[in-house]
Design a protein around this nucleic acid. Structure first.
Length: 504
RNA sequence: GGCUGGGUAGCUCAGCUGGUUAGAGCGCACGACUCAUAAUCGUGAGGUCGGGGGUUCGAGUCCCCCCCCAGCUACCA
């Protein structure tokens, strides 16, 4: 029973929300909900990153101010959260004035600590883009990848962050905390990068105005990454009006991120915190990409699985379950509408949904809905289960954790066949035996629902309400006599006769 | 090129420090049952564990070489 602070990355408002955003959010939400079940005081943060050049450029192209575009797109991300059933405690926007003020405060401290200096940044510059291009994005013979014109070598005055000063401390951090970054091979990747030698990085941009002003030199704005990373810290100071949660929740227990932003989180971020004399996060976990039929999703390929379309048709729970179940969390994996529908039918509808239907129907038919208050069987199958699941979730091994629970769903369906309650019901002499079987089934169902509550919040709430046992406290995830007294009728949890979505 | 992961049944993957006939889920075939959302349960087919050497009484599991896939190898967020 402690505090648990978990974050998603803040999503960049340059583009519309897509499955990748949904995936990260769902995973973090499952972990957040799980910890609430365990009685932890949870703070779950998500939000949007609104500054930087791509937003400024996109706004200009659309004839809007950057703020107007940010307002528009931020709202789309904010609206996504309830659709996913995300239980975030706050939604941060980097244009929040409180965030900006705090960023300035922290970075000023870093400067005061001697980790900031002014120098020239030199690179290949595209006058049409009005921007520097990195080495790996320029085309042959130094041409702009967008305009295909020749780039010029230019300089600009920048403030730099002395990342190089943290080489040793970062190596030590990784040595002392083997689980600082997970999965393991991502830690290897980050460590290899660190050991390769750290160079100082630009902290500010002079040619750009869409960002947080450098307080000691207002001709500059902070390079968007430093502004963005600090959201994890700044949010705590103003998420609750009149209250500063920093003391209570800092440092975070877990940052959930995608692999594209590993370096910023696993290298720059801890160094930045060290420079500010702040504790570093306990753990960063990197998930993989969802691939469509083995290929990266992209609009140009037209192979995008739209989370909102799936939710509209099958419900949020089905999407949450699918992405965590079908793709091993932490690895890349393929998704497809076929795989989704198959998983939905076999596991949710036929597996859990039908189990609930048959169990509840039998209790109503044979006992008028009254559940016998006798000791359930199957103890050997459920003993220790809750602990094992929690241990896996603590390691962010969400997929194996789910597998453990689904093994029990299958076990309960098998138990129904083994005990054949419909046969027992034929002979009053078997009444006691039938009592035990029914009690076991209902109780098993309840425990499974509690264990799946973080993944399937809507469905399990419905199911537990039917059982008259709405409590999802994790301590209750164990077979006990008499928890459920009476069951109500239950409509199919995961209906199968869902019409295909109307063509758009 | 270097580094890090990975290549195991049609599909998605488990297989810890080497040890009985290599496992699970899904899919498929056949059978059983009827409480249930024509759901469920059982049985089965079947894979030279990427390829080749080697160590060992014994290797998917260790060593060497090779092939293939993915990621990283710094300032796009």
């Amino acid at each position: 029973m402690g505090s648990f602070y978990i974050t998603t990355p803040i999503y960049y408002v340059n583009a519309a929300p897509h499955m990748g955003h949904a995936y990260t959010t769902i995973a973090a939400d499952v972990i957040a909900r799980h910890h609430r079940q365990r009685g932890d005081d949870v703070f779950f943060l998500t939000g949007v990153d609104e500054h930087g050049e791509p937003v400024a450029n996109a706004a200009e192209a659309q004839g809007m101010t950057p703020q107007a575009l940010a307002d528009l797109n931020s709202e789309r991300f904010r609206a996504l959260m309830p659709r996913l059933n995300a239980s975030n405690d706050f939604f941060i926007r980097t244009t929040d004035p409180e965030h900006k003020a705090k960023v300035q405060e922290v970075l000023t401290r870093i400067k005061d600590n001697g980790f900031v200096y002014k120098d020239h940044y030199e690179g290949w510059y595209c006058p049409r883009c009005a921007d520097f291009k990195s080495e790996n994005e320029i085309e042959d013979s130094n041409r702009c990848p967008i305009h295909h014109i020749e780039l010029t070598r230019e300089q600009e005055e920048n403030y730099f962050f002395k990342l190089s000063a943290f080489q040793e401390r970062l190596e030590q951090l990784y040595a002392d905390n083997p689980d600082f970054v997970g999965p393991r091979h991502r830690a290897n990747e980050a460590l290899a990068f660190i050991k390769g030698g750290l160079q100082d990085v630009s902290l500010s941009r002079a040619k750009l105005t869409w960002g947080v002003e450098v307080p000691w030199d207002t001709e500059h704005v902070f390079y968007v990454w430093f502004d963005a990373l600090l959201n994890y810290y700044t949010a705590l100071s103003y998420a609750r009006p009149g209250e500063d949660l920093t003391e209570k929740f800092w440092p975070p227990q877990l940052h959930v991120i995608g692999k594209d932003i590993l370096k910023f989180h696993a290298v720059f971020w801890p160094a930045l915190l060290m420079a500010a004399d702040l504790p570093v996060p306990e753990r960063i976990y990197i998930h993989g990409y969802l691939l469509m039929d083995g290929e990266k999703m992209s609009k140009s390929l037209g192979n995008v699985l739209d989370p909102l379309v799936v939710i509209d048709r099958f419900g949020t729970d089905a999407l949450r379950h699918y992405v965590l179940r079908d793709v091993t969390f932490g690895q890349d994996g393929s998704v497809s509408t076929e795989a989704f529908e198959q998983r939905y039918e076999s596991e949710l509808a036929n597996g859990l949904g039908n189990l609930a239907s048959r169990c509840i129907a039998m209790v109503r038919k044979y006992r008028d809905g009254a559940v016998p208050a006798v000791q359930p069987e199957l103890r050997e199958d459920f003993d220790g289960l809750a602990g094992e699941v929690a241990a896996l979730i603590d390691r962010a091994e969400l997929t194996p954790a789910l597998e453990l629970v689904w093994e029990r769903v299958r076990r309960l369906n098998r138990y129904v066949e083994e005990t054949a309650p419909w046969t027992l019901a034929n002979d009053p002499a078997n009444a006691e035996r039938l009592d035990v079987v029914l009690a076991t089934l209902v109780e098993g169902l309840r425990v499974v629902a509690v264990l799946l509550a973080s993944v399937l919040p809507e469905t399990t709430e419905k199911l537990l309400a039917t059982l008259g046992a709405p409590d999802t406290a994790y301590a209750g995830a164990t077979l006990t006599a008499g928890t459920v007294a009476q069951v109500q009728a239950l409509a199919p949890l995961f209906p199968k006769d869902i019409p295909a979505a109307a063509p758009a």
